[in-house]
Amino acid sequence: MAEQVALSRTQVCGILREELFQGDAFHQSDTHIFIIMGASGDLAKKKIYPTIWWLFRDGLLPENTFIVGYARSRLTVADIRKQSEPFFKATPEEKLKLEDFFARNSYVAGQYDDAASYQRLNSHMNALHLGSQANRLFYLALPPTVYEAVTKNIHESCMSQIGWNRIIVEKPFGRDLQSSDRLSNHISSLFREDQIYRIDHYLGKEMVQNLMVLRFANRIFGPIWNRDNIACVILTFKEPFGTEGRGGYFDEFGIIRDVMQNHLLQMLCLVAMEKPASTNSDDVRDEKVKVLKCISEVQANNVVLGQYVGNPDGEGEATKGYLDDPTVPRGSTTATFAAVVLYVENERWDGVPFILRCGKALNERKAEVRLQFHDVAGDIFHQQCKRNELVIRVQPNEAVYTKMMTKKPGMFFNPEESELDLTYGNRYKNVKLPDAYERLILDVFCGSQMHFVRSDELREAWRIFTPLLHQIELEKPKPIPYIYGSRGPTEADELMKRVGFQYEGTYKWVNP
């Protein structure tokens, strides 16, 4: 592979701008107003304001973009700056750019259920340069409990009458099928589907988006991507930290609602779906819905739930269990780990287990898709061969690698495990991989909904998990304890083995 010439960040961002501006969906010269509902909250200060700053800094926003914060707290732009700027990672050389960014910011205080507050917000936006005809993007960085009041008031008082209007809704989209349907029906009564952007930030990850290209742009994968060759698929999300004093919020939802029903299920769809007619948003989402419709409700015998306990040999936070978090209700049975087996009941995947695993306070930070292939028929190497695996590593250190057998150097035919490896950090030294939120917010500006969740996708996802969630809430089974920093409950490994996964433990990928 030829040595790549190092590029400056300015040059890299210039390439990104060229890609972005050559499309006809990006209205570079139009006025846009980006409204952050819930501007005083954690999500706004840690993710949304920093993301908008990065896009502005790199010249990736339309030229005439204004940012308006809205929340109940009586704040000023200076207050917003004070709480969000520490997350910007701005350099001293960017000081003038930073001043320009905050000059485009404003803030309006108001209630979430008060019509007069929204009329005041609308008047404020109209007073901005060309504000009355601007395109408006409303980001709901809010708890779902206020979605209905907020969307109703936005629709009645704050819509642009000339430009387009788009609304970005953060997960969780309800707690179960019934609450999700209620919320979807409410929002759909106010906005068209092409105006609604239900954001799952995992769909903005580079390697998640790469799944489609790997599958449908490489001839070698087509013939082997089926039940005849693939023994099982494992989708993993692991965090090495616990709730760390923020367990009160987590306890309301648990690990299945927080990660599995959305992030992991979306990745499953991209692995299992048929080739779409095109890369058009609805063509892709149509195929994802077909996959979900082929999955039956989760069966309790295919589920393992766990909850982390303190590690007596650990240090600091590792010595504390979930129930030691003062914000967690006493005696909570909320799971911090889950392993679930699903089956896609169609011709391509009949009988292939899709194993979804996620948890907190585990032994490493990792998100990946792992396809394990069947054993080689007619073994001539005296059971020395391990199964081939194709691994798409989402985070950290984005990579695609194939675990395969090669001859060990020497005189004899002794096979050993090795890999074919594409590590993004080595291959793409001159490429700026956008943060997931950067990519998705740019998608909203461009009107691309491919990486957002459609209402029928959402409904099918909740259909699969709601009976299990209701059973857990009714019966309150005690989750299996696992030690902070471990791989999780051993019962999860036993479940995976029972459905056909072979864990060798003899080879570990190392970032080159």
Rank of each mutant, 00 (worst) to 15 (best):
L214N: 03
M159L: 07
S40G: 10
W164K: 08
N153D: 09
P50E: 02
N153M: 14
D194I: 08
D114Q: 08
L20H: 15
G59I: 01
R198W: 04
K152M: 14
V169S: 03
Q133Y: 09
N210W: 01
P143S: 12
F101A: 02
A109E: 09
R166A: 01
A78Q: 09
V233P: 02
D251L: 02
H201C: 00
Q161A: 11
A103C: 14
I234S: 10
D113K: 08
E239Q: 03
N218K: 02
S184N: 08
Y249E: 00
P50I: 06
D194Y: 08
H27N: 13
A127F: 15
R175I: 13
T51K: 07
G247K: 09
A25M: 15
H201V: 00
L75N: 09
I154V: 15
C158Q: 10
N122P: 01
R120W: 10
L98G: 05
L96N: 11
V213L: 08
E206C: 09
P86I: 05
D58V: 14
L142V: 08
D194N: 15
I187S: 04
S73Q: 06
F66H: 12
A90G: 11
G248Q: 09
R182Y: 14
E19H: 15
G204Y: 02
F26A: 11
S40A: 02
L96D: 12
A141K: 07
F191I: 09
I48N: 01
T31D: 13
F66L: 12
F250W: 06
T65S: 08
R136F: 12
P62G: 10
D42W: 01
D30F: 08
R219E: 04
D251H: 08
Q83F: 08
F216C: 01
K45A: 05
I168M: 07
S29Y: 12
I48M: 05
T236L: 04
I35N: 05
E170G: 01
L55F: 03
T151K: 04
K238G: 05
R182N: 15
K46V: 04
H129W: 08
N153G: 15
R166Q: 03
V12L: 15
G222Q: 11
I196H: 04
E252F: 14
D24S: 08
V108A: 07
P92C: 07
I224N: 08
Y118M: 05
T31P: 07
E170Q: 00
R104G: 11
D42S: 05
E85V: 10
I196L: 10
Q209A: 15
T236I: 07
S40Q: 00
T31A: 14
Y147N: 06
R74K: 15
L16Y: 10
L183H: 01
S160E: 11
A103E: 11
D181W: 05
S29V: 07
D181V: 08
L98D: 03
L137T: 09
M207T: 04
F88N: 14
D228V: 09
V150K: 00
F138A: 03
F87R: 05
F88T: 13
F56E: 02
F66A: 05
I187E: 02
D181Y: 13
Q22T: 06
K97E: 13
N105Y: 07
R219V: 09
G248C: 09
M207L: 09
F34V: 11
T51Q: 02
I196F: 05
L43P: 01
R257N: 03
F216S: 00
D114L: 11
H186E: 08
W225Q: 04
R215M: 02
L140G: 12
R227C: 07
Y249N: 00
E252P: 12
G110S: 07
I167M: 13
G242T: 11
G245S: 08
F253N: 08
I234E: 09
T236G: 10
N122L: 15
S117E: 14
R257P: 06
G131R: 09
V233Q: 02
Q111L: 12
L16I: 15
S189F: 07
F216E: 00
G38P: 04
I199Y: 04
G245C: 14
E18P: 08
E252H: 12
C232E: 06
L16C: 05
G131W: 07
R81E: 08
I33C: 06
E206Q: 11
M125V: 14
L16D: 13
Y112K: 03
R72P: 00
Y249H: 02
I256C: 06
R72V: 02
G110E: 06
F21Q: 05
E85H: 08
R227P: 03
I168Q: 04
S180D: 02
E193Y: 00
G14Q: 13
I234C: 11
W53G: 03
V108Q: 11
L203K: 03
D113I: 11
Q133S: 11
W164S: 12
I256T: 08
W54M: 13
L121A: 08
K152A: 12
S184K: 04
V233Y: 02
L130D: 10
F102Q: 04
I15N: 09
F237V: 13
F21Y: 15
F191H: 03
A141T: 10
E99A: 04
A44M: 04
L60E: 09
E85M: 10
G69Y: 00
L96V: 15
I167R: 00
L183P: 01
K45W: 05
P144S: 06
P172V: 00
R120P: 08
W225F: 06
R182Q: 14
S160I: 15
D24T: 13
V150W: 01
L211H: 06
G174V: 05
G59K: 12
V233N: 00
G248N: 07
I220T: 10
V77I: 14
N185K: 11
R227Y: 11
K171L: 00
I256Q: 08
L140M: 11
Q111E: 10
E148R: 09
D194R: 10
I67P: 02
S180G: 07
C158G: 11
E148Y: 06
Q22A: 13
F26S: 08
Q209V: 05
L211C: 03
D30C: 10
A149Y: 15
N210R: 00
G245V: 05
G204N: 00
L98A: 05
N185M: 10
V77C: 13
G23M: 13
L190H: 15
K238P: 02
H27W: 12
F101V: 03
F191C: 05
L211V: 14
H124F: 11
T151Q: 06
Q133L: 06
L61K: 03
I187R: 00
P172S: 04
Q22C: 09
H186K: 15
G110H: 04
D100S: 14
L183M: 08
T236A: 10
F34G: 05
L61M: 09
V150S: 14
M212I: 06
D176C: 08
G23Y: 04
P86W: 15
R136T: 09
L137A: 09
T31E: 15
P172M: 03
K205R: 02
V213S: 12
K89Y: 12
G69K: 00
S189A: 13
